[in-house]
Design a protein around this nucleic acid. Structure first.
Lengths: 120, 120
DNA sequence: CATCTAATTTGACATCTATCTATCCAGAAA
DNA sequence: TTTCTGGATAGATAGATGTCAAATTAGATG
């Protein structure tokens, strides 16, 4: 098994990047993409990713990610794990604290997904 | 109430478009966005949206959306409803058949969401 | 070593979701 | 009107998900 904080990155196996208006999605691609969107389908996780992605220094300490929410520590930890397993963020432990940062390639590729051809 | 096929569009109420790396998402925006991503968090719905968005003529008949899947009619109907309620597609009945088309503004705004500032 | 703190994991529980079958509705065509 | 067909709705069920309290792990510090 992977060690605690290492990312079991789902996106690593499937490239996928063609826009939704493009060629038909293969079943595998659809399954993998769906997992990423499932990670984004919760308000708390969206705000967490937003907090992390907008943090000065490009990373955020978990200790700063817990206070903005009216939720228990384990729940925040759970949501961070989901985002991690979707390949959207990575976590690193430095001393006592754990820092999370976004994975730019994983986020940027979603941008191209929603690019539509100009209506002629 | 709205009549059968009219879209109870969720996105109509919330604009929201700033990139994830931008200012903090308000709780309401996060909730609304999460609903859109929940609609995208299923492989079947992703492939449906892909089929619809890539259809010649800009629309697809439900009759053509059922056959590619090994699922019952009602299940496909359910998934189309979820996409409709998320504001991602609209449906229109013409005679015997129902045609679905993508909602470009709803899709395009997601593209900007995932735009990250260049790392300096 | 013992202790303290930050964070994750475990286990439980209520709620939500994808799917099916059966039924219903809306037009078209007898 | 009656009948047929495409599609949506209703109701049921197995499985997934968000949440918390309690237990656990990883470093730091005494």
């Amino acid at each position: 098994m992977s060690k605690s904080l290492e990312l079991e990155d789902v996106t690593a196996t499937a490239p996928c990047c063609a826009p939704l208006g493009g060629p038909p999605l293969a079943e595998d691609e659809a399954v993998e993409l769906a997992r990423v969107f499932k990670a984004l389908s919760d308000p708390v996780r969206l705000r967490l990713l937003n907090l992390i992605a907008s943090s000065a220094g490009g990373e955020a300490c978990v200790c700063d990610l817990t206070t903005p929410f009216d939720l228990s520590g384990p729940t925040i930890s759970h949501h961070l794990k989901v985002l991690r397993q979707a390949g959207l963020i990575t976590g690193e432990r430095r001393g006592t604290w754990v820092y999370y940062r976004p994975v730019p390639t994983a986020i940027t590729r979603l941008s191209t997904l929603f690019t539509l051809p100009p209506t002629p």
